[in-house]
Design a protein around this nucleic acid. Sequence first.
DNA 1: GAGTAAAGTTGAAATGTTTCAGTGAACGTA
DNA 2: TACGTTCACTGAAACATTTCAACTTTACTC
Lengths: 344, 344
Amino acid sequence: MLNGRTPSVKDVAAAAGVSLGTVSNVMNRPEVVSARTRERVERAMSELGFVRNESARQLRAGTSRTLAYVMLDGTNPFFHDVAQGIELAAEDADLSLFICNSNSRSAREEVHLDRLLQQRVQGILITPVDPSSAHLDELTRRGVPMVIVDRVRGADSCCSVSVDDVLGGRIAVEHLAEQGHTRVAVVGGPDSLGQVGERLQGAREIWQSLGRDPEDLIYLPTEAMTVAEGRSAGERLAGLPARRRPTAAFCLNDLLALGLLQQGIGAGLRVPDDLAIVGFDDIEFAAAAAVPLTSVRQPRQELGRAAAQLVLDEASNPDHRHEQLQFTPELVARASTVSRARGR
Amino acid sequence: MLNGRTPSVKDVAAAAGVSLGTVSNVMNRPEVVSARTRERVERAMSELGFVRNESARQLRAGTSRTLAYVMLDGTNPFFHDVAQGIELAAEDADLSLFICNSNSRSAREEVHLDRLLQQRVQGILITPVDPSSAHLDELTRRGVPMVIVDRVRGADSCCSVSVDDVLGGRIAVEHLAEQGHTRVAVVGGPDSLGQVGERLQGAREIWQSLGRDPEDLIYLPTEAMTVAEGRSAGERLAGLPARRRPTAAFCLNDLLALGLLQQGIGAGLRVPDDLAIVGFDDIEFAAAAAVPLTSVRQPRQELGRAAAQLVLDEASNPDHRHEQLQFTPELVARASTVSRARGR
DNA sequence: GAGTAAAGTTGAAATGTTTCAGTGAACGTA
DNA sequence: TACGTTCACTGAAACATTTCAACTTTACTC
């Protein structure tokens, strides 16, 4: 009778000698069906190997059981930690999480968003290539619950969860200044990235308010925030004339910092004595670097978890108000800036 | 007329003055509809902001447009590289990739698989917690296309894609022997992991065939394959009496190697002179470590890509035969085993 | 033992697509 | 003019579920 087909509720109903509706009740409102019938239905299900068809469920019920996260860069562990936070929240809400990766390409991002719309996901979390791009407006217009992660977006057009990047820049450079450095490099880019601008701004603000010469805070732009670019920045740094060469570097993320660290050590520098390094994000590998990296910690999982909660609220709460959540970053001092003699 | 509802094909048809079937044809067989009509329908679609409902499509068409990868450990970049390879293949086949993470918990893995069955995904790629667990058999029995990634499974019950781990162990230890080391530690565990057993076996085989004393190949078991466990292994290593202390370590993955490296350097060892280190996997961060890590490279992306191709074949080719693809690992020698003086 | 309330079960309608047999129109050919 | 062929389009059925008003059974009360 089933001839190969995967069994449907109808088959289960027939096998258990009840109606369709009862089978459905067993799955969705078990409390309304008598224990005896329920047991009979459940046995039939497992005997037939019944597996509910989610498409049909979703079509009829009109609601999907998935959240999606479109991450910016799959090679940066930071985003996986954020994803992990989202996943935990999704697990609590009994939802599945769909993870996509735009790899910093706007076109790919758009393809993913389009698919997600077609799937009618409950909500979309995204770290966008460009927070002001048109396809994000599109989502808002459609009323799809959306939260921007680790970026902000003009106006109150949607929720966002981020970290105070200006403050992050301030505490990084303040820390270096406290360690006695008088010439500091800031490494990162491209400055079209909002965060680059803000972290740099924070760095400049504190530098100025400490009464230092702006000339002594040297911005070293990079083309991306990768390990390779960090290495290349290190080479440029080494190429500077000794009297202009900084004794410390604030890297705008940990990948850059790891690259810089590697290049520096390879070139025979002692870290932190010849060159102190501060990173940003505090990814797992920061602490695990050969010279453990001082870094400005973002609460990565927390970021994801909070974002998921916002999107769920937007999805279920009719008088949801958009919120721009901002976390406070925090300096984690390790050996890359604090030499053993001084630090302990 | 639409009162807030998201528009359906029916609405588009009405707006364009054609029938349902024609709208469907515009989407699925544009060549059978005249240019004039097609254009009219397309305009109606974009005016209404129509987005195809994937659940309905899938329900009727009986086929989903997604592949899924259940990864073992989201904190290990290795798996993200594999996922990236899968993603590329999926992109080529115009499919979406659903990424789940079991975090090495069998229960979580089962939940994910169950969900994926409900979604009727086209195929499942998985790096299982335990390749012989019952819920994998379940999948095979159901006829869901499945490929085991980076593991193997008894018999020809399904496709798998892996790397020759025994060979990997051999070349790692052979390399250390060539560098003149006579006492070598093998770090990794738990040995319930198939790979641990095989890599260790390879190490022992080559050690024996080089005529070395088995006593001089010291197995240092760990509880997991993480950075933290690598550090703790380093402490145990340091605690050994000098005459039994190895001058080289073969770590069964890069995370362990990075932990060991960090601990060693922190304790004042020179790498590779006091302690040479070989890792396994060759993740991105291996090359970026302060002492770039020698590692046994697995073709990570290629692994993922090949797995995706197998699963697609199983899904679409009626006379598909299960294949156990095995890649050959390859040693990438870097500074952690080759001191500058000798190596260049 | 009749009446009533509560509990349990039913079956048809609805969800948004795709598919496919069929209807017409337009055109060429004998 | 009649016939056949091609082309463009139509509309009902099917997919697997959920929902809900209506119905039946059971249990309780007086």
